[in-house]
């Protein structure tokens, strides 16, 4: 009985935290694109009210099943990512393979974003979907190798162990390349900022173009939720997890997650969307080798430290 109650409050807490992270990301992104503070905070609820009342518009011969299924699956991915984050000593979803699960979830986003573009049976949706696949190939490998670095240093794939292994020197401080590659990957799977080309305005919002009403709401909200969730997972990976003076550990995790979400969303909002064919080359030829080099450095430090 007590266990069931604990699990229920934990699940409710994760849902609430995802919601707060998504709202923070949306508000910070709106501030960065030139809205005033109050307007930016109210942007998300206003969009929610508008899109909930909007009539659903369908395209001819849309693949409704896959289209809707993919669109509505993005938010659960964000919730599951948040559930992996250890608050004090344990996460809602504990396990020795947290890092692998985080990676698995972000790869699911590939299928969902592509299917959102495909399902509408529209030219711009399909163009957006293909752009995403090209971009995903380019950001995902640096992201995967970035995940290797903290796991290697901590000698564990358990997010709680990785967080606990950092002591006073956070991994973000001595693995900056991995940290940056990870954050870039977060922008990639949330299709925001410089990596927003699959939903770019110059292709009529690409994968988002034909979405309407509640379907549009869940996908748009999911982009910000994924950014927030990605930032939250970075806390145990790179930002020392629950470590911090005076305050309880869980508060530190929440604080770091919210601050990183706000900062990342703000930077993303300030930057223009980059064209995919210009972005893919530097991601493959510059970032990927740099991240592999970062892993090598971490490996040498680990072996030398034994």
């Amino acid at each position: 009985m007590a266990e069931a109650l604990e699990a229920t409050t934990g699940a409710a807490g994760v849902l609430l935290l995802t919601f707060v992270l998504a709202w923070t990301a949306s508000a910070s992104y709106a501030v960065a694109t030139g809205r005033s503070g109050g307007d930016a905070v109210l942007h998300a609820p206003r969009e929610m009210a508008r899109l909930l009342r909007q009539r659903r518009r369908d395209t001819i011969s849309a693949d409704r099943l896959l289209w809707r299924l993919a669109g509505w699956s993005l938010l659960p991915v964000a919730v599951l990512l948040v559930a992996l984050v250890p608050l004090e000593d344990a996460a809602l979803l504990t396990g020795s393979l947290g890092v692998v699960w985080a990676n698995t979830l972000d790869i699911l986003v590939w299928a969902f974003v592509w299917l959102v573009g495909w399902g509408a049976n529209s030219v711009v949706g399909l163009v957006g979907g293909y752009r995403f696949l090209a971009l995903a190939l380019a950001y995902e490998l640096p992201l995967m190798f970035a995940l290797v670095a903290p796991a290697l240093a901590a000698g564990s794939l358990d997010l709680a162990v990785v967080a606990g292994a950092q002591g006073s020197l956070w991994y973000a401080a001595w693995m900056p390349v991995a940290f940056v590659a990870y954050l870039l990957g977060v922008l990639g799977f949330s299709v925001l900022g410089p990596l927003a080309a699959p939903a770019g305005r110059e292709s009529a919002e690409g994968v988002l173009a034909e979405l309407s009403g509640p379907d549009a709401l869940v996908v748009r909200a999911a982009r910000y939720a994924l950014l927030g969730a990605g930032a939250a997972v970075a806390v145990p990976l790179f930002l020392g997890g629950a470590s911090g003076p005076w305050l309880p550990g869980a508060v530190w995790v929440l604080l770091k997650a919210l601050l990183l979400t706000a900062a990342l969303a703000w930077v993303a909002g300030r930057l223009p969307a980059l064209r995919v064919h210009r972005l893919v080359e530097p991601l493959w030829t510059v970032l990927l080798p740099l991240v592999v080099l970062q892993d090598l450095v971490v490996g040498i430090v680990v072996v030398a430290g034994r």
Binding site: A32, T33, G34, G193, A196, G200, R201, E202, G269, R270, L271, P272, A273
Partner: peptide, 12 residues
């Protein structure tokens, strides 16, 4: 043009 590439601050 700036709006199309999502550079909203500079478009404004």
């Amino acid at each position: 043009v700036l709006s199309l590439v999502g550079d909203d601050v500079w478009a404004a």
